[in-house]
Simulated assay, not measured.
Amino acid sequence: MAELKSECCAPPAHAAGSCGCSAAPDTGGDVREVVRERYAAAAREAASGGGCCSAVALTDASGTEVFGNAVYAGAEVDGAGDALSASLGCGVPTAVADLLPGEVVLDLGAGAGADVLISARRVGPAGKAYGLDMTDEMLELARANAAQAGAENVEFVKGYIEDVPLPDGAVDVVISNCVINLAGDKNKVFAEAARVLKPGGRFAVSDVIADAGMDDATRADMAQWTGCIAGALTREEFQDGLRAAGFEDVEIRETHRVHEHAGSAIIRARKATA
């Protein structure tokens, strides 16, 4: 991992602000496989006790930690347990999801399970928290974290956020933490989130929002897909995508900068009741 990290920190990656990530594996340019391999490596690293996560960018170009468990500082994280140390997110969606006892929550791209476990504690025994992830290694790590935390109202399922393996109207709230920007087809993600939500259901995610002027070189840099930069939508694109999928009351609020061309934001919306 050290060799890969130093390779990433050499120009031109460092100049683009992606220092902290490893060089992208050769996958023929398939975004999903790039993401899967990078996050599988992060899960293996965390599970081995070697810390987290040299396989994924956690810092900006200046070395400030803008992803990972540092972003939870000061937030209520009861129930997260060891899962928090392996977080790769860019915000705290559970802080704005307004979760209530008895609700059903779905976390898109649950990773090590921190936000699922926090949600499970808040919805209580009468509620349930689902965690969806496509990476076997992350699912194994998340299930181990749930067992260690003694969480019984959680379920981790394998699948893609563009094709959620849950029935229509199954959940009250959809959350996600810096994952939607990694998807190849964001509109499918928005449509699936709307499909599984009950009428009036809530959408509360943390994600990276690209500045309108993000340069083509940054967008084209595959190595930054797993640093949550190159695949990010602009504010207008995110709003338009959610509205087209049937969401209303869309609110986007930037929380901190993660790159010279992008910032982390809280995005909230509500599925139309009609």
Rank of each mutant, 00 (worst) to 15 (best):
A57L: 14
D163C: 03
L117M: 13
A75Y: 13
A40E: 13
A262E: 10
C90N: 15
C21Q: 12
V154T: 15
E140C: 06
D211W: 00
T255E: 14
D249G: 07
N153V: 10
A142V: 05
G231K: 07
S206D: 09
I180S: 01
L141Q: 01
A245L: 08
D30H: 12
H14N: 14
A220H: 01
A142R: 02
E260Q: 15
T226R: 09
L139K: 01
P199I: 10
L58A: 09
G50R: 15
R253F: 00
I118Q: 02
I266S: 07
G49T: 11
E7L: 13
L88P: 03
G102H: 08
D211A: 13
C53H: 05
K158V: 08
L197N: 05
A146K: 02
C228N: 12
G184F: 08
Y160C: 00
R268E: 09
G74A: 08
C53W: 05
V96S: 11
A97C: 04
L108G: 04
A232W: 01
G81V: 11
A110C: 15
G20L: 00
Y160E: 03
T27V: 15
T234M: 07
P125Y: 08
E254Y: 05
A170E: 07
V258Q: 04
C19Q: 08
D211I: 04
A86F: 06
D26V: 13
D172G: 05
L99A: 04
S176K: 09
S264R: 02
S85Y: 10
E65N: 09
A46M: 07
E33I: 12
V179H: 09
G109D: 04
K186Y: 06
R268W: 00
A129L: 03
A114L: 03
I118R: 13
E103V: 07
A120V: 07
R253T: 15
S62T: 15
L58Y: 12
A10D: 12
E251S: 14
A40H: 10
E237F: 05
I180G: 02
G63Y: 06
S22F: 01
R270E: 10
A183E: 04
E248M: 11
Q148F: 03
A15P: 00
G241L: 03
S62W: 12
A40T: 11
A16N: 09
G17M: 04
A151Q: 07
R235L: 12
G201Y: 04
V35T: 06
D78P: 00
L4I: 07
D172W: 01
F238L: 09
V174E: 01
E7N: 08
M214S: 00
V196G: 06
E155P: 05
A40D: 11
C53N: 10
I229S: 13
A120M: 08
A24W: 00
G51C: 11
I175V: 15
L88N: 08
I118V: 15
N181I: 10
L84T: 03
G159K: 01
A212L: 13
E45K: 03
G241A: 07
V34L: 15
E192F: 09
L197T: 03
V77Y: 01
V164H: 05
A170R: 06
G200W: 00
R253P: 03
V196K: 10
M134L: 14
E260L: 14
